[in-house]
Measured scan of single mutants.
Amino acid sequence: GKELVLALYDYQEKSPREVTMKKGDILTLLNSTNKDWWKVEVKATANDKTYERQGFVPAAYVKKL
């Protein structure tokens, strides 16, 4: 199945390749080969529509579930 990670801290994206997350968010882990930056998929809701974004977050800010 898919691997999930838990956001340990809030993170505000600093570039278009990154994604914003809030502490407590559960994210889908896409790639953890880089030890510093993990690629995740974030589900977000805006205007009653759910959309998914993929991007990088600092590996130290998340932990595998």
Score class of each variant (00 low, 15 high):
4 L>K: 11
60 A>Q: 11
52 E>I: 15
21 M>W: 02
8 L>R: 05
51 Y>V: 12
55 G>N: 01
16 P>I: 10
53 R>A: 06
39 K>W: 14
8 L>K: 05
40 V>K: 00
38 W>Y: 06
21 M>R: 00
46 A>E: 13
9 Y>A: 10
20 T>S: 15
47 N>S: 10
49 K>H: 11
64 K>T: 08
62 V>A: 02
38 W>Q: 00
35 K>P: 14
15 S>Y: 06
20 T>M: 04
51 Y>S: 10
65 L>K: 02
40 V>N: 00
2 K>N: 10
15 S>M: 07
40 V>D: 00
62 V>Y: 02
54 Q>T: 11
19 V>G: 01
57 V>H: 01
43 K>C: 15
19 V>T: 05
28 T>K: 12
42 V>Y: 10
55 G>M: 05
52 E>V: 15
51 Y>H: 08
4 L>A: 06
31 N>W: 07
26 I>T: 05
56 F>L: 08
23 K>F: 04
39 K>Y: 15
17 R>Y: 13
5 V>A: 09
28 T>L: 15
33 T>R: 11
13 E>N: 07
10 D>I: 02
49 K>M: 13
41 E>C: 14
6 L>P: 01
55 G>S: 00
8 L>Q: 04
18 E>N: 05
30 L>C: 07
3 E>Y: 12
42 V>D: 02
51 Y>Q: 09
17 R>G: 14
62 V>I: 07
35 K>H: 10
62 V>Q: 02
64 K>I: 14
22 K>A: 07
20 T>R: 05
30 L>T: 04
18 E>A: 05
33 T>M: 11
41 E>T: 10
65 L>R: 03
21 M>H: 00
60 A>L: 09
39 K>P: 00
54 Q>R: 12
48 D>W: 06
62 V>H: 02
7 A>Y: 01
22 K>I: 07
54 Q>A: 11
23 K>Q: 09
29 L>V: 05
40 V>R: 00
41 E>F: 06
40 V>W: 01
50 T>D: 10
27 L>F: 07
26 I>G: 00
18 E>K: 04
6 L>K: 08
41 E>H: 07
40 V>M: 00
59 A>I: 02
7 A>W: 02
21 M>E: 00
22 K>D: 03
18 E>W: 03
64 K>R: 13
30 L>I: 13
11 Y>S: 00
33 T>S: 14
35 K>V: 10
4 L>W: 13
5 V>R: 01
65 L>I: 14
30 L>Q: 03
63 K>I: 14
25 D>A: 07
45 T>K: 12
40 V>I: 06
31 N>I: 07
29 L>E: 01
23 K>D: 02
61 Y>W: 06
36 D>F: 15
47 N>W: 12
43 K>V: 14
54 Q>G: 05
36 D>N: 13
5 V>N: 00
24 G>P: 01
53 R>D: 03
40 V>E: 01
42 V>I: 12
5 V>D: 00
30 L>F: 03
61 Y>H: 06
62 V>F: 05
38 W>V: 05
60 A>Y: 08
46 A>V: 15
59 A>Y: 03
45 T>G: 10
2 K>M: 11
41 E>Y: 08
34 N>H: 11
34 N>R: 09
40 V>S: 00
25 D>L: 04
26 I>Y: 06
52 E>N: 15
52 E>C: 15
20 T>N: 05
22 K>G: 04
45 T>Y: 14
47 N>R: 07
55 G>H: 01
30 L>D: 01
42 V>W: 07
16 P>T: 09
60 A>H: 11
46 A>G: 11
41 E>R: 10
45 T>A: 10
1 G>W: 12
56 F>I: 06
29 L>T: 00
59 A>R: 10
58 P>E: 01
58 P>H: 03
25 D>N: 05
2 K>R: 14
54 Q>K: 08
14 K>W: 04
15 S>G: 13
13 E>W: 06
23 K>T: 06
63 K>D: 05
45 T>N: 12
43 K>L: 14
64 K>W: 07
58 P>I: 05
59 A>Q: 05
13 E>A: 15
2 K>D: 08
48 D>I: 06
60 A>N: 13
1 G>I: 12
37 W>D: 00
12 Q>L: 12
28 T>Q: 08
27 L>Q: 00
40 V>H: 00
31 N>S: 13
65 L>F: 08
58 P>A: 04
55 G>E: 00
57 V>A: 02
55 G>Y: 04
19 V>N: 01
45 T>W: 13
57 V>W: 02
31 N>E: 14
10 D>W: 03
36 D>I: 14
23 K>V: 06
35 K>N: 10
9 Y>K: 13
44 A>F: 15
8 L>P: 00
10 D>C: 06
40 V>C: 02
49 K>E: 12
54 Q>L: 06
53 R>E: 03
49 K>F: 11
60 A>F: 08
10 D>P: 05
25 D>P: 00
4 L>Y: 15
43 K>Q: 13
27 L>W: 04
41 E>V: 13
15 S>T: 11
5 V>Q: 00
7 A>T: 03
46 A>M: 14
3 E>M: 12
30 L>R: 04
7 A>F: 03
15 S>E: 07
54 Q>V: 13
10 D>S: 08
63 K>Y: 08
25 D>T: 06
14 K>G: 07
10 D>F: 04
4 L>I: 07
35 K>L: 08
54 Q>E: 08
17 R>L: 13
54 Q>W: 07
35 K>E: 09
28 T>S: 08
39 K>E: 13
41 E>L: 14
8 L>T: 04
59 A>N: 02
6 L>M: 14
53 R>T: 06
